[in-house]
Design a protein around this nucleic acid. Structure first.
Length: 950
RNA sequence: GCAGGGGUGGCAGAGCCUGGCCAAAUGCGACGGGCUUAGGACCCGUUUACUUUAGUGUAUGCGAGAGUUCAAAUCUCUCCCCCUGCACCA
C-alpha cells in the first residue's frame, strides 16, 4: 500500500524550500490568480476545497507554462457574522457549540470565542494550516484581513474615488427590522435563519360610501379590481381609523397593521373601531364606480398589510369559499355575483391522469371551476383552497386574457402592471412593503417588521454611464465556463442600487457618514489589487496610507517623490508598490462560486471599470459549482459536513483535490463520495506500481505497440493542453488519469514492456497530474530518478508527428476483430454448436480497398463498378459485383481507409497471440487471395473475414 | 414571479454548438465466469426487448408533446419538472 500521508508531508515543505512561487516582479510574464475570501467565522470543510482547488490547478498549470505566478490569499472578517457568532457563544448557544465540536475545536478555545478578534485569529490560523496540508501553492506572505487598519485605509480611498465619480447616492430603502432591538435584521438575526422576504403590494383605496374615509385593500393582483364584489374584513380583530402620511383622507386598517406599517410611513391613529362595526359600511370601487358591501372574511390576517382585502370570488378560491360559507350561515349575499374578468382554459397545465374525466362545470366562475377540477368545492379545507389558488394564479398568469374594457386581450401580468400604474397615477392606490414570509421572528423573540430607512446610502450600479464602461470591461474579459456568459449579461443589466451602509458589524466606517459601516460585499470588490502591495507596506504605520499614496500606486497620479514626502513612506517603497501593481495586475484570473455571479463578480467588474485604468481591468473570471457529498448537498443541518483536515486524513489530499477539481465539469456540482474517492486512489496506486516496474524493464526494439502508446500519449497531451486552456478540468482528468490507465493496461496486454517508452509516458502523466495531485506528481517524478521538482517543470509539449491515426486504427481493428469473433462464437454455442477449435482471420485484398474508398467518396455504385474495370482484368467481375452489393446497403456508413492489406495483415499477425488469448482458440491470419476458405470473399477492409472451425 | 443553468440507460455523467458510424463514451453498481484457502484485490464477459445455427435484423428509447428533415438525444416551438440567484445577506 502506498503511504499517501508520508508522501504529502514530504512534498508540501519541499515546495517552499524550492521556492515554487517567486512572488516578485521579474522577467517572466506575470499571472495572478485569486479566489474570493473565505469568511472567518467557520473552519473549512471539504467542500471549500473546490474553488481554491481549481484556482490552484490554474496557478500550477500557468507556472508550468512558464509564467511567474502569484496565488495570494486573504480573509474576510467584515460584517455581522463574526459579531453575532460572538454573541451566540456569549449566550451559550448549544447548536453553535455542537457545530464547533464537529471541527474538533477545543472547549477552552470555544470559551474564548466571545471575543470577535479571537474568533477571526483562530479561524485564519486554522484555514491556513488546512490549506497548506491540501497542497495549495498559496504565497502566504501576502495574507491579510479585511478588518486590518491598512486595508480599511484602502477601502476608504476606494469609496472616495467612487464618491468623486458620483456613484454614491442617498435614498429610501425597505429593510427587515426588529422594533425591540431597533436594528435591521438579516438572515443571521432571525430564528431558524429565515431571510426576511420583502415584497411590494398594492393598496387600492375604496372610498366608504357617505363618509370621508377609505377602506384600503391590500392585494397582489390589482387587475382583479374589475371583479370585486365586496370587501372582506376580519370581524374579530380591532381596527383603527387613521391618517397616512402622503395620502389624503382617513383609512380603516387593522390595529396590528397600523403597528407594523408605521415603520414605513407615518401613521396617526384617529380612533379605534371594531371589525364588526365596519360591516355596516359600503365602499366604492375606484375603477368601476360600483358600490359594494363589506363582509366578514374568516381568512383575513390582521398583521399582513392593511387587514382589508377585496373579494374577487370569480378568481380567488378563498373569496368564493368565504362567501359560500356566509351564505350557509344565513347572510344575505343575493346581490353578490361572481364576475369573470380573465379568460383561461381551466386545468390546462394538469395532465390527463390528474384531471381524470373531471370537467369543470362552472367555467364562468373560474375559482369554482378550479376547485372542481381538483375534486373539491367551497367547503374544502384551507390547504386545498391554497392549492387551487396557486394553480389558478399560475394558469391565469401564463395563458389568461383580460376580458374587461380598456384592457381587453392583455395578458394578466401586462394588465396588472398597467392597471396598477393607472390607479397610482389617479391616486386611487399606493404601494406598501410587506413581509411575504411573515411572521419572521427575531432571535430576541420579537416579530420582524418592514422599516423604510430614509437616510440609506447606495452605490448606484444603475447609473447608465457606469453600466456602459462596465459592459466595455466585461466585453474584453474571458468567462469560464463559457455558458456563464449569459448570466453575466443578465446580471450587468439587472444590478441597480445597492445599499452600502450598515448600522452594525465589523468593517470600515462609511466615509460619508461615520455612524455606518461599509457593507461587507462592497468592501471586497477591488481587494486583489491590495495583494500586489501588502507585503511592502505592512510595516508602515497605517496613518501614512493616505489617499495620495493609493492614487499614485493604483492610478499613477502624482509622482513618487511627492507622495513619499507627504506620507512619510520611503520613496523606494512607494515606487516598489507602483511597480508591483503594474506588473501583477495586467494578467488576473478571479475564481469563485457560480452563485456569486449576481453580486460579487458583477460588483468586481463594475468597481474595476470605475476605478482603474483599462490596462488593469479584469481579464478572466472562473465560476465554480458546489460540492455534493454522497449525492447530498453538504450542510450543517444535514450533518454531513467533513472538516477539511478530516477529509485529508481519510482520503488523502490529492484524492480529495482531484475529485473536487476534476471530478465534474466546472459549472456543475461536484460529487464527492467514498466510492469515487476509492476509485481515484486505486488509480494512483496503479500509477505507482507501473512506475515502480519501469526500473525492471529493458529498452528493446520499438514494436508497433510502442508506437501506438506514443501516439496515444501525444494525442493525450494535445487534448489535455487544449482542455486546460479552457479550464475543462473534467476532460483533462479523464484524459490524464482514467484513459492513461486503460492505455497502460492495453499496452501490457499486448506485451508492451519498453522501459524507455514507459518512462516517457509516465513522465508526461506525472507532470500533467501536477495541477490536480501535486504530491503524487512529485513522488512519481522523483521515483523515475528526476532531481528537479515536477511543480517547477515545464508542462509537456505534444509531438504531433508521433500521433498516428493509422496505428491507432490498426489497434482498434484488433479489438474489433475480437469483438466480432466473440459474437459469432457466442451465436454458435447458443445454437448448440461445439466450441471453436480454430479461428481463421482473412484479410481483404487490396482491390477491395480501392472499391470501398470509391464508394465511400462518391456514394455511387456505378462509379464503383467503373473503378473495378479500371483495375484491370485480374479482378473477378462477379466477385466484385457481389462485394459492391454487399456494401450498398451501408453506403452511408463507409469510410475511406489508407491501410493496405499488407499493413492490416501485419498488425493482426503481431497481435495473433493476444487475439488467441482473448478468444481462447488457435488463430491463423491469412490473405484473401491466398485463402482456401469458402468464406474468404466476405472479407472487407478493416473488417476481415472470420472463419471459425468447430 | 423574474433571471441563469439543467432534465440522457439501475446510479453518476459524456454527447447537443457543428443532425447521420448513437442502443448512446467513461466510471460505479448488478449479474455470470476466471484467479484464489478466501476475497472488499485483480482479470474476462453480460447489463431494453424480441430476433439471427456466422459477425445481424426489427421495435421501443435520451423530461412530455408537436414540427423541420431522406435522417433528430442533437435543430425549432409549446409545456412540465429540478437546481441556483433575486440585494444588504456573507
Amino acid at each position: 500500500m502506498v503511504d499517501y500521508s508520508a508522501i504529502e508531508a514530504k512534498w508540501q515543505n519541499a515546495w517552499e524550500d524550492a521556492r515554487v512561487f517567486d512572488g516578485e516582479p521579474n522577467q517572466k510574464k506575470p499571472y495572478m490568480v485569486f479566489a474570493a475570501f473565505p469568511y472567518t467565522n467557520t473552519a473549512l470543510h471539504i467542500g471549500h476545497a473546490r474553488t481554491y482547488g481549481t484556482t490552484d490547478v490554474l496557478a500550477r498549470y500557468k507556472r508550468m507554462q512558464g509564467y511567474n505566478v502569484l496565488f495570494p490569499m486573504g480573509f474576510h472578517g467584515t460584517g455581522t457574522p463574526v459579531v453575532s457568532f460572538a454573541t451566540r457563544i456569549q449566550n451559550g448557544d448549544k447548536e453553535l457549540v455542537e457545530e464547533l465540536k464537529i471541527f474538533h475545536i477545543p472547549e477552552d478555545d470555544i470559551a474564548k470565542m466571545t471575543d470577535p478578534n479571537f474568533i477571526v485569529a483562530y479561524f485564519v490560523k486554522r484555514i491556513e494550516s488546512d490549506f497548506r496540508r491540501t497542497g495549495f501553492s498559496i504565497d502566504w506572505r501576502r495574507k491579510f484581513l479585511t478588518i486590518e487598519p491598512m486595508f480599511m485605509r484602502f477601502v476608504e480611498w476606494q469609496f472616495g474615488v467612487l464618491n468623486k465619480k458620483g456613484y454614491l447616492v442617498k435614498g429610501k430603502h425597505p429593510v427587515g427590522w426588529c422594533p425591540k432591538d431597533d436594528n435591521a435584521v438579516g438572515m443571521h438575526d432571525t430564528k431558524h435563519d429565515v431571510e426576511p422576504d420583502i415584497e411590494k403590494e398594492t393598496v387600492i383605496k375604496f372610498k366608504v360610501d357617505g363618509e370621508e374615509a377609505y377602506l384600503p385593500c391590500t392585494t397582489y393582483r390589482p387587475e382583479t379590481i374589475f371583479g370585486v364584489t365586496n370587501i372582506f374584513v376580519n370581524e374579530s380583530v380591532p381596527y383603527v381609523l387613521c391618517r397616512i402620511e402622503g395620502q389624503t383622507g382617513n383609512f380603516y386598517i387593522t390595529k396590528a397593521g397600523a403597528e407594523m406599517l408605521r415603520y414605513q410611513m407615518k401613521i396617526d391613529v384617529v380612533n379605534e373601531v371594531s371589525g364588526k362595526e365596519l360591516l355596516s359600511k359600503k365602499a366604492v370601487n375606484p375603477m368601476t364606480g360600483e358600490i359594494v358591501p363589506v363582509m366578514p372574511g374568516y381568512f383575513v390576517k390582521e398583521s399582513i398589510g392593511t387587514g382589508v382585502v377585496m373579494s374577487v370570488p370569480a378568481h380567488a378560491p378563498f373569496d368564493y369559499a368565504a362567501l359560500e360559507r356566509l351564505r350557509t350561515q344565513g347572510y344575505d349575499i343575493q346581490g353578490i355575483r361572481a364576475k369573470k374578468i380573465i379568460d383561461v382554459k381551466i386545468g390546462r397545465s394538469l395532465s390527463d391522469v390528474a384531471m381524470g374525466d373531471v370537467k369543470p362545470i362552472h367555467i364562468d366562475i373560474p375559482a369554482l371551476g378550479y376547485l372542481e377540477v381538483l375534486h373539491a368545492n367551497a367547503n374544502a379545507i384551507d390547504d386545498m383552497l391554497e392549492f387551487a389558488t396557486k394553480l389558478e394564479y399560475r394558469e391565469e398568469s401564463h395563458w389568461g386574457k383580460m376580458l374587461v374594457n380598456g384592457y381587453e386581450g392583455m395578458s394578466q401580468p401586462e394588465a396588472r402592471e398597467k392597471i396598477k400604474a393607472d390607479l397610482i397615477t389617479k391616486k386611487d392606490a399606493f404601494e406598501v412593503n410587506v413581509l411575504a414570509n411573515a411572521p419572521v421572528i427575531c432571535r430576541c423573540g420579537t416579530q420582524v417588521v418592514v422599516k423604510v430607512v430614509d437616510d440609506q446610502w447606495f452605490i448606484n450600479y444603475g447609473d447608465e454611464s457606469w453600466k456602459k464602461i462596465a459592459r466595455e470591461a466585461y466585453a474584453g474579459m474571458r468567462i469560464l465556463p463559457d455558458k456563464a456568459r449569459n448570466a453575466f449579461d443578465a446580471a450587468i443589466d439587472w444590478i441597480d442600487l445597492r445599499a452600502v451602509a450598515r448600522a452594525r458589524g465589523l468593517g470600515t466606517p462609511f466615509p460619508l457618514d461615520k455612524r455606518f459601516i461599509i457593507e461587507s460585499l462592497s468592501d471586497s470588490t477591488i481587494y486583489p489589487a491590495f495583494y500586489t502591495i501588502v507585503n511592502v507596506i505592512r510595516d508602515e504605520d497605517q496613518s501614512k496610507l493616505k489617499p495620495e499614496f493609493f492614487d499614485y500606486v493604483f492610478l499613477g497620479l502624482g509622482d513618487a517623490d511627492k507622495v513619499a514626502r507627504s506620507t512619510g513612506i520611503p520613496f523606494e517603497k512607494v515606487s516598489r508598490c507602483r511597480a508591483s501593481f503594474t506588473y501583477w495586475y495586467t494578467q488576473t484570473s478571479n475564481h469563485s462560486a457560480a452563485e456569486l455571479i449576481f453580486n460579487h463578480f458583477t460588483m468586481y467588474i463594475f468597481n474595476h471599470a470605475a476605478i482603474f485604468n483599462k490596462t488593469f481591468w479584469p481579464k478572466q473570471i472562473v465560476a465554480n459549482g458546489m460540492v455534493n457529498y454522497e449525492g447530498e448537498k453538504m450542510s450543517k443541518s444535514l450533518g454531513n459536513i467533513i472538516p477539511l483536515g478530516d477529509g485529508i486524513k481519510k482520503y488523502g489530499a490529492d484524492t480529495l483535490r482531484f475529485l473536487e477539481t476534476a471530478g465534474s465539469e466546472l459549472f456543475s456540482d461536484a460529487e464527492f463520495g467514498d466510492d469515487a474517492a476509492n476509485g481515484v486512489r486505486e488509480r494512483f496506486d496503479y500509477l505507482y506500481s507501473i512506475t515502480d516496474n519501469i526500473q525492471k524493464m529493458d529498452s528493446g526494439e520499438m514494436k508497433q505497440v510502442d508506437y501506438w502508446l506514443y501516439s496515444k500519449l501525444n494525442r493525450k497531451i494535445d487534448a489535455a493542453t487544449k482542455a486546460m486552456e479552457k479550464m475543462e478540468l473534467r476532460d483533462v482528468a479523464t484524459n490524464v488519469l482514467y484513459n492513461s490507465i486503460l492505455e497502460l493496461k492495453q499496452y501490457a496486454a499486448h506485451s508492451g514492456n519498453n522501459n524507455m517508452v514507459l518512462r516517457d509516458y509516465m513522465s508526461a502523466i506525472a507532470l500533467m497530474l501536477n495541477p490536480f495531485a501535486p504530491h503524487v506528481s512529485e513522488e512519481l517524478w522523483h521515483m523515475m530518478g528526476n532531481e528537479s521538482f515536477a511543480s517547477t517543470e515545464k508542462w509537456p509539449n505534444a509531438d504531433t508527428d508521433m500521433i498516428s491515426d493509422k496505428i491507432e486504427v490498426q489497434a482498434e481493428l484488433v479489438e474489433g476483430v475480437i469483438e466480432d469473433a466473440r459474437q459469432v462464437m457466442a451465436l454458435m454455442t447458443r445454437k448448440g454448436g461445439k466450441p471453436a477449435s480454430g479461428v481463421k482471420i482473412i484479410v481483404a485484398d487490396d482491390w477491395k480497398r480501392e472499391v470501398t474508398n470509391s464508394l465511400a467518396e462518391n456514394r455511387n455504385i456505378s462509379k464503383a463498378m467503373d473503378k473495378v474495370k479500371s483495375l484491370g482484368p485480374s479482378i473477378n467481375k462477379e466477385a466484385a459485383a457481389k462485394y459492391i452489393s454487399s456494401l450498398a446497403k451501408r453506403v452511408n456508413e463507409l469510410r475511406k481507409t489508407d491501410i493496405s492489406q499488407e499493413e492490416e495483415f501485419k498488425s493482426l499477425d503481431e497481435s495473433k497471440e493476444y487475439i488467441a488469448k482473448a478468444l481462447g482458440a488457435e488463430v491463423t491470419i491469412e490473405k484473401e487471395s491466398g485463402s482456401r476458405s469458402q468464406r474468404a470473399g466476405r472479407a472487407a477492409p478493416l473488417k476481415p473475414c472470420i472463419d471459425i472451425a468447430q
